[in-house]
């Protein structure tokens, strides 16, 4: 019994030390996050709303292309490795998993008043939507997510650009 009691007491102490270390590291890390930010409160609109609501718009290939043709900014939320192998021409790399590292380099391209689009690998990945939610919490309100992702882009027979551009 004593062995179990000491094991539990020590485990609790180690867990407390881990919490303190983890949150200290998180506070100073570039990729640190606020675990209490309101990610769930962000409205995601799928195009069927009858009234004007502020939120993240989910669009198909046609709307995505018209945004691109109109000179809109496009963000690629995949990793740098994926981006290097092929991305939508003109897209800016913004690896969702390294949100803090990319935020400072990408925000100069973004405007609070102009619409920009985000995509990820395909229709089943949700990194583009999660990145949109993160940016929404920072005050960006004109965000579009291209649901089809790079797979949808390729299915439409559109060309890719390779290499690192941003």
């Amino acid at each position: 019994m004593e062995r179990i009691r000491y094991g539990i007491i020590q485990a609790i102490i180690l867990t407390v030390i881990s919490f303190v270390t983890a949150f200290t590291f998180n506070a100073f890390s570039e990729n640190g996050i606020n675990p209490f930010r309101k990610m769930n409160g962000v409205p995601v609109l799928d195009g069927f709303q009858t009234e004007e609501v502020e939120g993240i718009r989910i669009v198909g290939i046609d709307e995505f292309r018209s945004l691109l043709d109109g000179g809109g900014i496009v963000l690629d939320s995949r990793t740098a490795e994926d981006y290097d192998q092929g991305h939508v021409p003109g897209a800016i790399l913004f690896d969702y998993f390294e949100f803090g590292s990319y935020l400072d380099t990408v925000t100069p391209y973004l405007s609070f008043d102009e619409e920009f689009a985000i995509y990820c690998t395909g229709p089943y990945c949700d990194d583009s939507e999660l990145l949109a939610r993160e940016l929404f919490t920072l005050g960006y309100r004109k965000i579009t997510v291209f649901r089809g992702g790079l797979e949808g882009w390729l299915e439409a027979g559109l060309p890719l650009e390779t290499g690192m551009h941003y």
Binding site: I17, A22, F25
Partner: peptide, 9 residues
């Protein structure tokens, strides 16, 4: 945030 640090500690 915490789990990797539990592993390290």
């Amino acid at each position: 945030i915490v789990l990797p640090w539990v592993e390290i500690i």
